[in-house]
Nucleic acid binder design. Sequence first.
RNA 1: CGGAGUGUAGCUCAGUCCGGUAGAGCACCGCCUUCGGGAGGCGGGGGUCGGAGGUUCGAAUCCUCUCACUCCGACCA
Length: 577
Amino acid sequence: MRTSQYLIATLRETPADAEVISHQLMLRAGLIRKLASGMYTWLPAGLRVLHKVTAIVREEMNRSGAMEISMPVVQSAELWQESGRWDKMGPELLRFVDRHDRPFCLGPTHEEVITDLIRNEFNSYKQLPANFYQIQMKFRDERRPRFGVMRAREFLMKDAYSFHINQASLEQTYQLMYQTYSNIFTRLGLNFRAVLADTGNIGGSTSHEFHVLADSGEDDIVFNSTGSYAANIELADGVIKDLDDGSAAMLESREINTGNAHSIEELCALLDLPATRLIKTLIVKAEVTDTNPHGLMALVLRGDQALNDIKAEKIAGIVCPISFASDAEIETVLGCKPGCLGPNKLDIPVVVDRSAENMRNFVCGANKAETHLMDANWGRDCHFDQVADIRKVKEGDLSPDGQGELLIKRGIEVGHIFQLGTKYSEAMKAAVLDENGRSVLMTMGCYGIGVSRIVAAAIEQNHDTNGIIWPEAIAPFQVAIVPLNAHKSPRVTEVSEHLMAELEKAGIEVLLDDRDKKTSPGVKFADMELMGIPHRIVVSDRGLENNELEYKFRRAEQAENVPVDSIMAFLSARIAS
RNA sequence: CGGAGUGUAGCUCAGUCCGGUAGAGCACCGCCUUCGGGAGGCGGGGGUCGGAGGUUCGAAUCCUCUCACUCCGACCA
């Protein structure tokens, strides 16, 4: 390819409405342009990258034995009503009617369509297991699209759905997909982690997310140094090192005046105690029942620990999404404002985190204005109804498997695999006959990859001040040829053209920067670097006088000279490796 | 959906407070010079100042409404 016949849509300056680096560089390198919020046109160079990612995903999915299909983007409401998600989904599902006033939606995911297909096609256990996938544009009307294609409304996704006669078969395919995903992200050249994940509303028992590590990621992922444990912070478990073992002798408790000190920090300063000696009591909304007429619940943690909302939402009776009780509600029910609350003599359910379960002689609110309880103890002064893990793990906690300490890093979720169970097959009556001629609901799994998001994630992980540094597997071109003074030097032109032809014959993708003499060398260098092309050859009279070409690897500091007649061997060795 | 902000040339922005001929740099077109790190000179094209309404002799500028976009939060199989 020649730049003179290609859309090199590079921008010198950063567009004002791009905040994260991948979004800025995708615009500046001329990969995408915005049509509307969360919707992007892929320009030629960007589409080349997207296609390379797609090709790797497709190859590995095919290798795993999955079958590629293509389902409609537009889906009729009936199926969604049948699964119950038409009402459950909310405005994220973009709905509209056709000319006959029949309701439709743009597919945000395809569980309904695939389940409908398979319940009609499959009759026997002998047809199982089976795994189907597609690579297709999805549409989700996100409340707040952001960061370019990282969180877009229209995005390219690989989604796969597997069908099984039982849980054991599902687990086999699940493992296969786990391995397939690991292969895909390895081939893409990304630094990633597979982590245990929350199954969220989709249900099911087991789920893993695949995260590309990058500081701009939207998720916190937790893992130990040996790699034997990794989880999304939403459900990560960890062991506190300095946990109180509850062996100390109980001291006499007493009320103390703490004035206007309300926060843990203020109390620590006032009492000259570490936060680990304090107890934090949070009041959240709960369902109103006979046993809990106030509709509130107390969540108790050690003073230095933070609440994990996702974990807390799993406690029976808590209102989802979790919300804190207002000051007025707390005062009405507990007779005290927040700031002096404690788990003593509360007539609402009290859930204590394991971090506070065994504490001795702690400080907690006395449920009385400006008053805290010193040297309080469970049983004698305070009570709890239930112990649960509701704590957000911290860096430095011990790994739950006993292997070292936990690290926390930011991650971009690029893949997610689920064991669905029978959620959809039950709702949509998708069954086959087993070997005894009995009708059995199929067990399902589903497996997603954010293909367009991978492009952004790769940039987040691979860039410098000059622009993108593509992993070689997904670069739009492998080699850039930059001729200098081609308009004056027939020899430079000839060598450049010849090299391009040779490389293309060898199946290597080349971009020859043959823009006219008005495009200065500096502009060409800057553009090729901005676009992140991994290998660059400069052809100049100066070099040719010594029979040399200049080679520079995008990641390297320095360029090096290579004899003209060994350039093909030189390049094919580097590109292969 | 709550909070904040921004809309002026393809891009980055000035001009708005204090109403009076629509600006700069880059990009683009032509000619000349230059040619290994975003060159220089001369000449040129390009805008209903997001939209609608209002105030005024006169509105990019003041007022009202509206639309779009961005950020923070909430939300997110």
